[in-house]
């Protein structure tokens, strides 16, 4: 297993995709920084650090996570199709389940790096902008928000893996992500937000639910659980698909 993970990481060497994703994960704090800098200046007071960090995480949870993290996940599973590698890889006596798990672990590692990158750049931009209340408590608080969204994003990546394996290529998983995204935009503004698995990172990773509490049906544990359930079901489906279907 360690060997599989090691080789997966080696395959990322010189890959543009990961570089692109790093740039994408810097985009979120960067774009938000402009919003906060300007909003602060107009009233003469500086923006709040924690608020900026949470807004940035909302941006990540709503857009970056689903689209960019999804794209990266697709890349990890798709490249053996583009490079025409599965027919070679599967003649090596390795277990398909181990291969699946090691690729998921690599996705987890990569998403953690991307999350931490966003977080660190958030702090750097806050310092540059001179935002208010950059203290230890807020730094740790915001880290917890980021990590919560990160963790719940992991099971949500697994349906994308399934789509990638079945349809072999970038088109289907991207279409899937876009549909998920569109529904998210609609659901987010409704009281049913807790019922949509893909809004879990938002509910867990931001304090947006404060605005919802009176109107929202259910609570964030609903979609946290549904996200995990979807992850598990997709994982099992991936295992069955890999072991039953001939991938060559």
């Amino acid at each position: 297993m360690i060997v599989l993970i090691k080789t997966e990481l080696l395959k990322l060497k010189r890959s543009y995709m990961f570089l692109m994703c790093i740039i994408g994960s810097i985009c979120a704090p960067f774009l938000n920084w402009f919003v906060f800098i300007n909003s602060g200046n107009s009233e003469g007071i500086k923006a709040q650090f924690l608020e900026y960090m949470i807004q940035t995480n909302l941006f990540i949870s709503m857009i970056i996570g689903i689209l960019l993290y999804g794209l990266f996940t697709t890349y990890i599973f798709e490249r053996e199709f583009t490079d025409n590698m599965y027919k070679h890889v599967f003649t090596i006596p390795i277990s398909k389940s181990d291969l699946l798990i090691s690729k998921i672990i690599v996705v987890m590692i990569a998403l953690l790096i991307l999350t931490i990158t966003s977080y660190c750049f958030g702090i750097i931009f806050s310092l540059l902008g001179g935002f208010l209340n950059i203290n230890m408590a807020n730094i740790i608080n915001s880290l917890i928000f980021y990590l919560k969204s990160y963790l719940i994003f992991i099971p949500l990546m697994i349906p994308i893996i399934l789509v990638t394996l079945i349809f072999r290529g970038f088109v289907a998983p991207i279409a899937f992500s876009i549909i998920v995204e569109i529904i998210l935009f609609i659901v987010c503004q409704s009281k049913y937000i807790a019922f949509y698995p893909w809004s879990a990172p938002i509910l867990l990773g931001t304090n947006i639910k404060k605005n919802f509490e009176f109107a929202m049906i259910g609570n964030s544990s609903y979609n946290m659980i549904s996200a995990v359930v979807i992850g598990i079901i997709s994982f099992i489906a991936c295992l069955i698909y890999l072991n039953k279907k001939e991938i060559v």
Binding site: L10, K11, K13, R14, S15, R79, D83, N84, M85, K87, H88, T91, V248
Partner: peptide, 12 residues
Amino acid sequence: SLIEYPGFYGNL
């Protein structure tokens, strides 16, 4: 074994 055209990781 080598089946049809060999595939490689192009970035490596």
